[in-house]
């Protein structure tokens, strides 16, 4: 852990986007986006449909290349959690968490030990031998989180750990979502990983993030950002107002 912290403090950002644009054919999804994520920081990207949130996440994850601008990521392999857990249905929870370690060629004993720790971290130590269909939606998403963390929390990796999340709780019921948000805050605090969290839910953004970045839609640009210091209803109110403005600007006729 200390090694990670030293590396983390040696750079002032884990992610830096400079003038990033992305077009699909003639459609511009992102335009001139500048964004930094500092080591250990929790940033929420907020926006309505069509703001290119998911596109931005793909660029940071290295799944896609920007049309213009530079994406600079100081992390070994960023971990990604999607809206769907997308666990391998033929593997147990533990084996799912082990998969990224296996792909990296880590031996069985070490894999099993690390997977067990990560499952304990998401409080699913008892479900290690269960298969995805035997778990609830919230439990599956926690396994997906543990699996994602396995890719990025690695002492031998160069760079700081980075967790990218694309509306990970959007498909869950309200109370499960509430619990998982708490869990994520705890895990973030415990692991010191940076988080870039995409959501369209203002309350979620304000509750989770240290910083909330609002993107406009079609193309996605950074409209404004807020530091969440004391948070609370006022800030959520203010951001909601701004988000409504962004959406209203798209009304025609």
């Amino acid at each position: 852990m200390t090694a990670i912290l030293e590396k983390a403090t040696s750079v002032d950002h884990v992610v830096r986007l400079s003038g990033v644009g992305k077009s699909f054919g003639t459609v511009a999804a992102l335009d001139g986006v500048d964004l930094d994520v500092k080591p250990g920081e929790f940033v929420c990207l907020l926006g309505a449909s069509g703001c290119g949130k998911s596109t931005l996440l793909s660029l940071v994850a290295g799944l896609d290349k920007p049309t213009t601008g530079v994406v600079d990521v100081h992390s070994g392999r960023p971990a990604v959690v999607f809206q769907e857990p997308a666990l391998m249905p033929w593997l147990t929870a533990a084996r799912n968490v082990e998969l990224p370690l296996k792909l990296r060629g880590i031996g069985r004993a070490e894999r099993e030990e690390r997977a067990a720790k990560l499952l304990d971290l998401v409080r699913l130590g008892d479900a290690a031998r269960k298969r995805p269909h035997e778990l609830s939606g919230g439990m599956r998403q926690r396994v997906a989180l543990a699996r994602a963390l396995a890719t990025t929390l690695d002492d031998s990796d160069t760079g700081a750990p980075l967790l990218l999340m694309d509306e990970p709780f959007a498909a869950l019921d309200a109370i499960t979502r509430d619990v998982l948000q708490g869990e994520l805050r705890r895990i973030w605090a415990q692991t010191g990983t940076s988080v870039l969290f995409v959501t369209h839910d203002v309350r979620e953004a304000v509750r989770l993030g240290q910083r909330v970045v609002l993107l406009s839609s079609r193309p996605g640009r950074v409209v404004r950002e807020w530091e969440v210091s004391d948070g609370g209803e006022d800030l959520a109110h203010e951001i909601t107002g701004e988000l409504r403005g962004v959406i209203s600007s798209h009304a025609r006729g």
Partner: peptide, 27 residues
């Protein structure tokens, strides 16, 4: 095979062959 599984495979660090062996074929 759901495309998302293959996407997850590459996010987790699987190369082409590894993806076939660990994701595509079992799926």
């Amino acid at each position: 095979v759901p495309p998302l599984l293959l996407r997850v495979g590459s996010v987790l660090g699987a190369g082409r062959l590894q993806s076939a062996r660990h994701v595509l074929l079992p799926a």
